[in-house]
Simulated scan of single mutants.
Amino acid sequence: MMDFAHARRTMVDNQLRTSGITNWHILDVMNRVPRERFVSEARSALAYSDEEIALSETRTMPAPATFGKLVQLAEVGPDDVVLDIACGTGYSTAVLAGLANAVVALDDEEALVVQANDILADLDIGNAAAVCGPLEAGVAKEAPFDVILIEGAVDEVPETLFSQLRDGGRLVAVIGSGNAAVTHLYVKSGKSVVSRAAFNASLPVLAAFKRAPSFAF
């Protein structure tokens, strides 16, 4: 039987630390959350590999280092309320719940949302819950959020999500597709949102955030 605790420590030492993830809170939480619980039994041996893991036909769990870098960029704090978009089976939600005050997780696949809530409850994580709905719509009734994390590549971030950020809130998104995609940090200040490019990251494109095609005449 695979030693998952050892696999977690190896992931932290050989994947997270070597990728520039220095926030000890993130390293500690990712060393404790059982990633194998959030994938199918057939894929559990791959849970700590440095690769994406398919959760459904349209949703994947990001590689540990990629996810860790997104969270580190968001600077999640203990008083923050976080919106976790495209949460899948809830691994990201569980990690964020160990860093934040509360987490609202969102996915548009009902089966994944049900699975996420079941696992979170089984792990006794009481400050997080998943809901089903359109990814691009966010969860307005739970806004404002201190942090919004989008777990997939997007063409652009809709204004709807920026409107759900608290003043001073941060949104992290990967803009573009393939290896040329760039992670951006958006910070809300009053009615304005400023952004900066941070690092390249490759994540599957989320269809809900594809830019509508324009017609040329």
Score class of each variant (00 low, 15 high):
M2P: 15
F4D: 04
F4I: 12
H6N: 13
R8K: 12
R8G: 10
D13N: 14
D13L: 14
D13P: 04
L16S: 11
N23C: 13
W24A: 15
W24G: 12
H25K: 13
L27N: 08
V29M: 07
M30C: 10
P34K: 09
E36C: 07
E36F: 06
R37W: 12
R37C: 11
V39I: 03
R43F: 12
L46M: 11
A47Q: 01
I53Q: 01
M61V: 03
P62F: 02
A63C: 07
A63Y: 03
P64T: 02
P64D: 02
P64H: 03
A65Q: 05
V71P: 05
V82K: 11
L83T: 01
L83D: 02
A86T: 00
C87H: 03
C87R: 01
S92G: 14
A94G: 03
L99F: 04
A111K: 06
A111H: 13
L112D: 01
V113D: 00
V114A: 12
V114N: 04
D118A: 14
D124H: 15
G126Q: 15
A128H: 03
A128P: 02
G133A: 07
L135P: 02
L135D: 03
E136M: 12
A140H: 07
K141D: 15
P144Y: 08
I148R: 07
I150W: 02
E151A: 06
E159W: 06
L161G: 02
F162A: 06
F162D: 06
Q164C: 05
L165N: 04
D167H: 13
G169H: 08
G169K: 06
R170L: 11
V172A: 10
V172K: 03
A173Q: 02
V174Q: 01
I175V: 13
N179D: 10
L185H: 03
Y186P: 04
K188Y: 08
K191S: 15
V194G: 14
S195Y: 08
A198Y: 07
N200R: 12
N200G: 10
R211G: 09
F215N: 11
F217I: 15
